[in-house]
Amino acid sequence: MSFRVLVVDDSKLARMAVAKALNALRPDWTRVEASNAEEALGHAKSGTFDMAIVDYNMPGRDGLELAAEILALKPGMPLAVISANHQVEVVTRAREVGATFLQKPLTEKALNEFASDAAKRLPKSP
């Protein structure tokens, strides 16, 4: 089953890192990238992805606000908020908005867990 993943991070390097890990784990999945909240919401409105990986630390709207907005448009969609800081507040708020928290730098193991879990939750025909 192939899915489309939205990767939101203002750092291209970080997006490259996620892309590399995703390619290794799920070579058949495709990626949509966004470097800021506006682009990400644009994708969310046109509905071009099945799950999202959002960086917490971005200029303007932070990743959690963006996550909440994406989930308001696509309730129940698998979404991971990633941050280098394993701060209690971020972890708690991520759970509150219904997102998974993943620690940066993203390990393949953590990403794999998220991806498997997401694939299980999604309807069988994307």
Partner: peptide
């Protein structure tokens, strides 16, 4: 944010 993103980049 600059420090944080730099840290993330270093991690990568």
């Amino acid at each position: 944010r600059a420090l944080h993103t730099l840290k993330g980049a270093a991690g990568i």
